[in-house]
Design a protein around this nucleic acid. Structure first.
Length: 571
RNA sequence: CGGGGCGUAGCGCAGUUUGGCUAGCGCGCCUGCCUUGGGAGCAGGAGGUCGGAGGUUCAAAUCCUCUCGCCCCGACCA
């Protein structure tokens, strides 16, 4: 492609809409433009990269034995109702009413659609197992789109769905997708981690997230750098804390704490560390209030809590309910004297002589002890781990960092096949629910992550596999006939004979502009036809990454490039 | 949805507090000259419903009311 014939609108200055590097660079390098909040247009360069990613994904899906389909974005609401996810998606679902008054949704994901098709078309064990996938635009009305294509209302996802006869089959399908994901992200040049994840609204039990570590990531990763344990924040567990059995039980006593209702205020007022305090939160479970006890410096993990309570979701009680249950204003609740179920976090169960609210206005209790002063109904792990925690597997120090979620695989089991009655006849002629898995990749996020990972002050540095063009030819002076002739000749040679993807910067611009632009858009290899060529007929080959430079005769270029590519592919 | 901020040329911004001539600056764009190894220089030029609507006023980018859009923090998030 000749630069003058395509559209690569590069920008010298960073646009004010962008906050993070990848977003700024995608705009500056002319890959994308924002059309409205959470929706982006891909310009020629961005489209080329997007297609590179898609091609890699498609190749590896096919290699893994998955079969491509293409499902509609328009989804009828009744299927979502049937699976029970209409409520779960709620406001995130983008819907519209057509001219007949029928409400239709723009698909946020496609479990229901694919399950509907499979239940209609697959009836026998002979047709199983099968994994179907598609690459398609999804729509979610994110409350807050952010960071360019990292969190948008409209995004491209590769989503795959496996259907098996039994759990052994599911395990195989899952493994096969898991391995394909590793190959995909490896080929895209990403550094990634796989973490245990909670399956959230997707349902199912086992789930792994593929994460690119990055300070701009919106997900939190918990890792043990010693044994390799890794999980996301919702899921991560920590080593149980030990009983402080050396402390002797002291006398329970009331202390006045006028108007001190937060942990910080009470802690400062009574000169007691938050980790020696217990906060009592009233939740509503199954319509009944439940007291949840946490150490003052810990945070409740509602995902864990809802599992413990056996609920889909849990919610804090409103102020009126709290006052009714505890007999005191919010901020003075405590377990002593409460006659509702009391769930204590494991860290609370080992505390002695702690401080809690007294269920009386402006009063706290000191030297509270479980068993003696109140009864814990259940002890469970219901909190987020902290940097003070130790690894659940090996008791080593724990590392907490951030990451971008680029892929997620789930073992769904029969959640959707039961709900939508996707059954097959087994070898004995008995009807059984299909065992499902689902597997997603955020295609746009791969672009952004790749840039986050690989850029410098001059711009993007594409890995060879994602580069929109592998080579950029820069004739320094297009008004010099011998130079432009050589450039055109080389372009034809590399494009037509060698089959490389080449961009020829044929613009009548000063050299500085062309070099800066070439760096900004991140083309891995520059071929410069300039001073050296006029003097000695030599071309200069320069690598974007590292800036290493080689001289070559026009005839030797092809071979030299091939050698360089072999090296670049290994990076 | 709560809190904060912004909207003036394609992009980045000044001007708004204290209303006042023809609304500025840098980058980009067009023409010409010159220049050709890291975002040159000179000269000339095009480009604006000052987000929109209404109001106050002799006079509104500037003050008032409403409204739309965008960004940030939080809540939320396969």
């Amino acid at each position: 492609m000749k630069w003058s014939q395509t559209l690569i609108p590069t920008l010298k200055e960073s646009p004010s809409e962008a906050e993070i590097e990848s977003h700024k660079l995608m705009i500056r390098a002319g890959l994308i433009r924002r059309v409205t909040a959470g929706a982006y247009a891909y310009l020629p360069l961005g489209t080329l990269v997007l297609n590179k990613v898609i091609a890699i994904v498609r190749e590896e899906m096919n290699r893994a034995g998955a079969v491509e389909v293409f499902l509609p974005s328009l989804q009828p609401l009744d299927l979502l109702e049937e699976s029970g996810r209409l409520q779960i998606f709620g406001e995130d679902l983008i819907t519209f009413e057509d001219r007949h008054g029928k409400t239709t949704a723009l698909g946020p994901t496609h479990e229901e659609i694919i399950t509907d098709i499979v239940r209609n078309e697959v009836n026998s064990y002979r047709q199983l197992p099968i994994t179907l996938y598609q690459i398609q635009t999804k729509f979610r009305d994110e409350t807050r789109p952010r960071f360019g294509v990292l969190r948008s209302k409209e995004f491209i996802m590769k989503d795959a769905y496996s259907f098996d006869m039994d759990y052994e089959g599911l395990n195989k399908s899952y493994k096969s997708m898991y391995d394909a994901y590793c190959r995909i992200f490896d080929r895209c040049g990403l550094d990634y981690l796989v973490v245990e994840a909670d399956s959230g609204a997707m349902g199912g039990d086992v789930s792994h997230e593929f994460m690119v570590p990055s300070p701009v990531g919106e997900d939190v990763l918990i890792r043990c750098l010693k044994c390799g344990y890794s999980a996301n924040r919702e899921r991560a567990e920590s080593a149980p804390l030990l009983q402080e059995n050396h402390a002797t039980l002291q006398t329970l006593k009331e202390v006045p704490t006028p108007n001190k209702h937060t942990i910080q205020e009470v802690s400062a007022f009574l000169q007691v560390k938050p980790c020696q305090m217990v906060k009592t939160m009233i939740y509503i479970s199954n319509g009944q209030p439940v007291a949840v006890l946490l150490r003052g410096d810990h945070e409740v993990n509602e995902t864990k809590l809802s599992k413990v309570l056996g609920q889909d979701t849990v919610a804090l009680a409103d102020h009126a309910t709290i006052e009714q249950v505890t007999g005191a204003r919010v901020g003075f609740a405590g377990p002593v004297g409460l006659n509702i179920e009391i769930i204590a976090d494991q860290a609370v169960s080992v505390l002695r002589n702690f401080v809690t609210g007294a269920n009386k206005p402006d009063t706290h209790l000191e030297n509270v002890n479980a068993d003696r002063d109140f009864k814990i109904s259940r002890v469970a792990d219901i909190r987020y781990v902290t940097t003070d925690d130790r690894c659940v597997k090996c008791n080593h120090k724990i590392d907490i960092s951030q990451g971008i979620e680029i892929g997620h695989v789930f073992k769904l089991g029969t959640k959707y096949s039961d709900a939508l009655k996707a059954k097959f006849l087994d070898t004995n002629g008995k009807g059984k629910s299909m065992i499902m898995g689902c597997y997603g990749i955020g295609v746009n996020r791969i672009l952004a992550s790749a840039i986050e990972r690989s850029h410098d002050e001059n711009g993007i540095i594409w890995p060879l596999s994602l580069a929109p063009y592998k080579i950029i030819i820069i004739p320094v002076n297009v008004n010099d006939p011998s130079v432009i002739q050589a450039a055109n000749h080389l372009y034809d040679d590399l494009t037509n004979l060698a089959g490389f993807e080449v961009l020829l910067d044929d613009r009548d611009q000063r050299p500085g502009v062309k070099f800066k632009d070439a760096d900004l858009i991140g083309i891995p290899v520059k071929i410069i036809i300039g001073k050296k060529f006029t003097e000695t007929k030599e071309l200069e080959i320069k690598l974007r990454k590292g800036g290493e430079t080689f001289l070559s005769t026009p005839d030797g270029v092809r071979l030299k490039i091939k050698q360089l590519f072999e090296v670049l592919l290994k990076i």
